[in-house]
Simulated assay, not measured.
Amino acid sequence: MMMPANFSAVSENEMTYVMGGSVADYLAPAMGAAQWQNFHKNLITIVGNKYVQGFLDNTVGAVFSGTWTPGDGLTGFGGQFSTIWKKNYTDNVTDKSTGAQKFGYGALGVVNSILNVAGNLAAIYNLGFGTAKNVVSENVWKVA
């Protein structure tokens, strides 16, 4: 009987069987929809944690500051955007900046402003799905 040139006869007792095909198959199983949903929830929560205090300062803190006037919350958020724009564009553009450099700094300012909005939305998510601790139930109070 003629066999192809790349044929090799191996007896059954010489065969080796392996499970899987790669290291990833047994070290890191593929994430399903539930794991990806949990990943996104955790990521939004982590980002939101960074922004909760600033969001509260610009909303509830502004209203209950004792000196509230209409627009105080917007002033706080506007201050965030002006700071972002200053750090990304105004502080970087000089008389010698080219049009492309100005465009790049402006694009960076816009992207960072959008990320700031996303962070504040994540803070709203945290406030909507989390439970705030009650200072009265978390501390021991003494009456004089």
Results as ranks from 00 to 15, higher is better:
47 V>Q: 04
77 F>D: 04
43 L>W: 15
55 F>A: 11
78 G>C: 07
78 G>S: 10
53 Q>E: 02
88 N>G: 01
65 S>M: 07
73 G>N: 15
88 N>V: 02
99 G>S: 06
48 G>T: 10
37 Q>T: 04
68 W>K: 05
101 Q>W: 01
61 G>F: 00
30 A>R: 09
31 M>Q: 02
97 S>P: 02
51 Y>I: 03
89 Y>Q: 00
62 A>R: 00
32 G>S: 08
86 K>M: 06
31 M>A: 00
32 G>D: 11
73 G>I: 15
49 N>W: 12
60 V>C: 00
54 G>Q: 09
56 L>E: 11
56 L>G: 06
78 G>I: 09
63 V>E: 10
75 T>W: 05
74 L>W: 14
33 A>N: 12
73 G>S: 15
88 N>Y: 09
33 A>S: 11
74 L>H: 13
63 V>N: 05
100 A>T: 07
68 W>S: 02
56 L>I: 14
34 A>Y: 10
47 V>C: 05
85 W>P: 06
67 T>Y: 04
30 A>F: 06
101 Q>N: 03
92 N>W: 01
81 F>C: 06
90 T>G: 01
60 V>A: 01
78 G>N: 14
87 K>A: 09
66 G>W: 06
54 G>R: 11
61 G>H: 00
37 Q>E: 03
32 G>Y: 05
35 Q>E: 12
68 W>P: 01
36 W>P: 08
48 G>P: 05
45 T>L: 12
61 G>N: 04
100 A>F: 02
91 D>V: 03
92 N>M: 09
80 Q>R: 15
70 P>Q: 08
50 K>H: 13
88 N>D: 12
39 F>M: 10
40 H>Y: 15
93 V>C: 03
73 G>C: 14
59 T>M: 08
88 N>W: 07
74 L>Q: 14
99 G>Y: 05
71 G>S: 04
68 W>N: 07
78 G>Y: 13
91 D>H: 06
74 L>A: 14
81 F>R: 01
81 F>L: 13
70 P>R: 00
30 A>L: 03
65 S>A: 12
34 A>R: 11
58 N>K: 10
71 G>Y: 10
96 K>S: 07
36 W>K: 11
103 F>T: 04
81 F>M: 13
50 K>G: 05
69 T>V: 07
51 Y>K: 03
49 N>T: 13
103 F>Y: 09
96 K>G: 00
76 G>P: 10
74 L>K: 12
83 T>E: 11
69 T>D: 05
33 A>H: 09
39 F>P: 03
85 W>K: 07
63 V>D: 03
44 I>T: 11
83 T>Y: 12
63 V>A: 09
61 G>D: 05
92 N>Q: 11
103 F>Q: 06
84 I>R: 07
81 F>Q: 07
95 D>R: 05
88 N>P: 01
37 Q>C: 01
92 N>T: 06
77 F>I: 14
47 V>I: 13
81 F>G: 01
54 G>C: 08
103 F>D: 08
36 W>S: 10
46 I>W: 06
81 F>H: 06
42 N>L: 12
92 N>K: 13
